[in-house]
Amino acid sequence: MNKNMRVLGLPYVAWMLIFICLPIVLLGVYSFTNNTGNFSLENFKSFFTPIYIQILLNSLYLAFISTVICFILGYPVAYIIAKIPSEKTRNTFLLLFILPMWMNFLLRTYSWMTLLGNNGLINTLLQALSLPQLNLLYNSGAVLLGMVYNFLPFMIYPIYSILIKIDANYAIAAGDLGANPRQTFMKITFPLSIPGVITGITMVFMPAVSTFVIPSLLGGGQNMLIGNLIEQQLMQAGNWHFGSAASLIMMTIILIAMQVMNRFDKTQQKNMEMLA
């Protein structure tokens, strides 16, 4: 790299230092100090108590379930769209699934409240049909629904983009060699699409585990997740030290999850080179 190129890179270095490195350092400093500014492990100690562990586990559990649901719903959608022969129709269908993402995230989540609430659309309809009302809002189910709804496109898109790149000849060759359509999918198409699945899982799991808007709006505060905890500590309780420690713990968990995913991805990488 020559000198000029290095100069061009400086703004980005500055950006990274100010907006990425510095906040992380601050996060570290806050989480390892107490109110008086002295070094302390107190924040971590208080995090690892049953109540907070429960919140952490609950977050991971809901994020995991919503990722699984997104995968179960998203893979067939991506597969069906990728199989459409006309490129125009394909892009239209893809757009229909991506379109909600063009709307504000908060707005989309609020609109679910008006659908699910006690005086919401669904319950009004039930009432009109003289059926008993349902408790749809402010529970784990509503949080899960919100997560799946908001993050489903993040699953569909990467899987679709891998599926569309897989050479159709592989499936034809598998058929030629005696594989029926189911075997062709299980042994050829699906294994070749795993890199997209991994990207999809990563892109759904990470925002799902850290979201605080969805649980606070649709969960109604009864379902506190780690995102809510951090938000509450930082914004309401004003306990930056404890909030930072919780953030650091969540970051560590996400980093570990990413590392595990990358390991899967590595074994697939050489396959991707062949696909390109």
Binding site: D167, N169, Y170, I172, A173, L177, I188, L192, M274
Partner: peptide, 14 residues
């Protein structure tokens, strides 16, 4: 009971 050798081989990359 026929098999094909493809122009681009179509060997399974995985």
């Amino acid at each position: 009971p026929l098999n094909t050798v493809f122009q681009n081989y179509a060997l399974f990359p995985h």
